[in-house]
Design a protein around this nucleic acid. Structure first.
Lengths: 114, 114
DNA sequence: TTTCTCCTATAGACTGTCGACATGAGGCCG
DNA sequence: CGGCCTCATGTCGACAGTCTATAGGAGAAA
């Protein structure tokens, strides 16, 4: 996937993987890679600043924990984060059907098969 | 539509509207607005630099013409531009189904209804 | 004559992504 | 014991490309 095409959609992805359960940064990367069959490989230089930004916006809340000697910062969605996620989803639907309409492509059914 | 979410997809949109016939800049804006039911309102500060970039990349070729006293620069797709468009379309399909998979949304059918 | 639409264009601010780098603990292998 | 890999977090500076604002000019319409 072309780098930078994710721009503007990363927030949605992060919020989405945190919907069901809290995760720490590294686990978010792995989860995104898994859900996208390896297509999404979020660099740490993108992920960590994004997490801080989302926390600053009040969409995430983080807590430190130590597993063994390892420090982890675990992020969980706030109520505002859930609302933001709902917005992101609906914006994505609009966006995606708009672009598809212009390109003359019909979005395929990969999401259904998954 | 949130500004900036188009980032990385504008090239595809421009190439797509030029697929069937050459158009000048202003007409491209109108065409995009029309095809997207007004959702896409490309500012001139985005469009014109993008057109020059695409021409520099060899995807477009422009010619000046005068209708009345009005100067227009008309852009047409080159052969390389058509190949680029095909690439953009296939990248869009991948991108779109990837994001949809992560968000857990199924792209809706707006493209079919249009 | 003033204002609207058409039409092109640039400059500068801004923002978010990226690649590279830095740091450190734990685990495994030889 | 030494080295290297994985896990884990984070920053910095470069960069690209979008946006807002601004500019200019022709034709049409009021």
């Amino acid at each position: 996937m072309r780098p930078d095409s994710l721009r503007g959609h990363i927030d949605a992805l992060i919020l989405a993987v945190l919907e069901d359960r809290p995760l720490h940064g590294y686990a978010i990367m792995e989860e995104l890679a898994k859900l996208s069959s390896g297509a999404i490989d979020l660099p740490t230089g993108t992920l960590y600043p994004a997490l801080r930004r989302l926390e600053r916006l009040g969409y995430l809340h983080s807590t430190w924990s130590a597993t063994g000697g390892r420090q982890r910062r675990t992020y969980r969605l706030t109520a505002a984060g859930r609302r933001a996620l709902a917005d992101e989803r609906s914006e994505w639907r609009t966006f995606s059907s708009t672009i598809s309409a212009v390109l003359g492509t019909t979005p395929d059914r990969a999401a259904d098969r998954a």
